[in-house]
């Protein structure tokens, strides 16, 4: 399924040890060839982010302007990627739609990471009652079927960009909390931490000065995976008509709109589908690359 837990399943199901099974392949690779995936992915994501930020200044058609040529096929001319069933420029809608995907991918993930890491580290450092309370909360969040939870949440809060980001962030918190907790526990016993404690450092100081940097390494590699998962989750909601309200374009909404004319005009579905594909693909390749790098470093 297209939920957060879906793409981080391996991270969750493996017991909280620092060295996850995923990190193992890095131990040794024979005849490793040059991997173009990560740099290409970075380029694509760069384009998407820049496009999303600068959309207003780019020479694009108004994404909400109802045109007079409907479902036009992509081609050179007024509309490079064609028009949708209401005659709106698809390229423009895709670029503006990237705002939603990026707001969710970057915003919700960052929010989830901050909250998740804070809770996870607190749980792993203090253990005891703090740990059990936080773990209970994390387990509670995870026990909800993710998409059902989102659908109910969106129905309750009315769809808006802010609410979407908040809801998706909530969904991402457990993943970060678990990995942060596991790594805090692992590092808390190391000499540099015990030494710092012995010197009378406050817990806050130990957590931020000594532990945070070490915990962040594995968290960063998880981050890209969660970004991909949240972009997909937002797409799923928009596809169900529960995303940002129209006329604001979103890739999932474009897919849903185009479905009714998919037979005659497959591009209505294929183009937003391709944007999803490339974006998630890019996140994944970068994630693989980051995991490889971080795996090597942490195994040193």
């Amino acid at each position: 399924m297209t939920d957060v837990v879906g793409h981080t399943g391996s991270a969750l199901s493996v017991p909280p040890t620092v060295k996850s099974a995923d990190a193992a392949p890095v131990v040794k690779r024979r005849r490793r060839r040059r991997d173009y995936g990560a740099p290409l992915g970075a380029v694509w994501l760069g384009l998407v982010v820049v496009g999303a930020i600068t959309a207003d200044w780019l020479p694009l058609a108004d994404p909400n302007e109802i045109g007079n040529v409907f479902s036009a096929t992509p081609g050179l001319g007024d509309h490079l990627l064609g028009t949708d069933i209401l005659g709106r420029d698809i390229l423009s809608r895709c670029v503006y739609g990237a705002r939603i995907s990026m707001a969710v991918g970057l915003g919700a993930t960052a929010l989830a990471m901050v909250v998740g890491v804070a809770f996870g580290m607190a749980a792993g450092y203090f253990r005891g009652a703090v740990d059990s309370t936080i773990s209970l909360f994390v387990n509670f969040l995870m026990a909800f079927p993710p998409l059902m939870f989102l659908i109910a949440l969106v129905a309750a809060m009315r769809p808006s960009l802010t609410n979407l980001v908040l809801g998706l962030a909530l969904l991402g918190i457990p993943n970060f909390a678990r990995i942060a907790r596991a790594n805090t526990i692992a590092f808390a016993e190391r000499e540099f931490v015990t030494a710092s404690k012995a010197l009378g450092a406050s817990p806050f100081r130990v957590l931020t000065r000594e532990l945070l940097a070490n915990v962040m390494l594995p968290v960063m590699s998880l981050m890209l995976v969660v970004m991909a998962a949240l972009v997909v989750a937002e797409g799923s909601l928009s596809f169900l008509g529960l995303g940002v309200p129209p006329p604001t374009p979103s890739w999932g909404g474009m897919l849903a709109d185009g479905r009714s004319q998919m037979n005659e005009h497959p591009h209505l579905v294929m183009i937003p589908g391709l944007f999803f594909f490339l974006t998630v693909f890019a996140f994944n390749r970068l994630g693989d690359w980051a995991r490889g790098r971080i795996g090597r470093e942490s195994s040193l």
Binding site: M1, T2, H7, G37, A228, V232, G235, S236, F239, G252, L255, R259, M262, N263, P266, V269, M270, G273, F276, F277, L278, V280, F281, N284, R285, D288
Partner: peptide, 18 residues
């Protein structure tokens, strides 16, 4: 594998139907 993982289930589903 990366391609499949990068295709959201709802995109995969409608492409398969088509």
């Amino acid at each position: 594998a990366s391609a499949t993982l990068a295709t959201p289930a709802f995109v995969l589903a409608i492409v398969l139907v088509w």
